[in-house]
Nucleic acid binder design. Structure first.
Lengths: 184, 184
DNA sequence: ACTATTAGGAACCAAATGGTACAAAACAAC
DNA sequence: GTTGTTTTGTACCATTTGGTTCCTAATAGT
């Protein structure tokens, strides 16, 4: 009963996610964003309201694609040693230095945009929970506090590596480091 | 032989550092910056060329004040246990969530501004070196590689905590975590 | 007091910003 | 094919952006 839209919102959102991930919110101009989403202004504002809203939707998109896949990787390897299960978190950094969208969002907008901070924290906690499961399975004799502590260490290491990675630096071997931290 | 300037460049730079530190480069508009520096456009452009240049000078200012002081704190406590020496890195987060300027700069500008990435890496390496000294003194039997590895862990933990802290989260106890990582 | 030189400040500028208005276009239902 | 409804694209808009111009003010040396 009306003109059908010519774009796939999911594809547009993927484009938005990619550019926000790589360049951040402020550094992405509207033309940049429209380009990445394959949209023109008319359709953009009709379908997505405004730039801020799309950024939020991009965080959600990242959550249900990249993060979900990472968490699934971590969950899946139930049988193996902990450091192997956690390896996905310490895979080689992408050469474009886009880093981790969660980390980028926290640092750029955390202090000033509570809604962004909330989403980022929620995602970080998804990661934390997955790590806790691995640590718990790895040595069931650990106390609850110890599990939480070690998982928190791994989570902080993950974010630290992502942050440092954005400035380039030299890639390091991480299996030794992981094993060191996981050792009770 | 000419009109003397009415402002102290060091004070102006301090103001610039504070606002860039808290808000980042892109989110700080020129009026914001002028306000923070206590300058008007005329003096600003005459004395500091442009916004980018001031950002670089702000990184330098941070290097020679905040970072130098932190490194000095770490160096000074030669006698004590390692986790005490490293405590300055894990002091309570500032409530304004400004975080660590080095971390902020890496994340916001690392991928696109090589000069910023260089400065940030140089500062991160100053920190790394200070940490290595502590780790080395703590247990002289460690191999050179082991010292580097543990110091790198601490450095990554530091940046991870600063990044996560920007989104608020709950403050955690860190002495246990530090001791865990420092244990050979 | 005069001059040379620099600082300060306001007016100004082009370009880019995010966002809106609206008419043309494409369909579904009848 | 006509009508009703929604999408699409363009032209437009006010505001803000970082930066420049240029005139006045203040000083030091003579």
């Amino acid at each position: 009963m009306a003109r059908p839209r010519e774009f796939d919102p999911e594809v547009a959102l993927q484009g938005a996610t990619n550019i926000f991930w790589r360049r951040g919110f402020k550094a992405t101009s509207l033309p940049d964003l429209l380009d990445a989403m394959g949209l023109t202004r008319g359709s953009f504002y009709k379908a997505f309201r405004d730039k801020e809203n799309v950024y939020m939707l991009a965080l959600d998109y990242y959550d249900r694609t990249v993060l979900s896949s990472t968490v699934a990787d971590i969950d899946r390897c139930a049988g193996q040693e902990a450091w192997i299960c956690l390896a996905p978190l310490f895979a080689p950094l992408k050469p474009d230095r886009s880093g981790c969208f969660i980390c980028n969002a926290m640092v750029e907008l955390g202090p000033d945009y509570p809604l962004v901070a909330d989403k980022a924290n929620a995602m970080a906690n998804r990661l934390r929970k997955a790590i806790e499961n691995v640590v718990e399975r790895d040595d069931p004799t650990r106390t609850r506090e110890d599990v939480a502590k070690v998982a928190d260490l791994v989570l902080n290491l993950y974010f630290g590596r992502q942050a440092i990675g954005k400035a380039g630096g030299t890639e390091l071997e991480w299996t030794d480091r992981l094993k060191h931290v996981l050792r009770l």
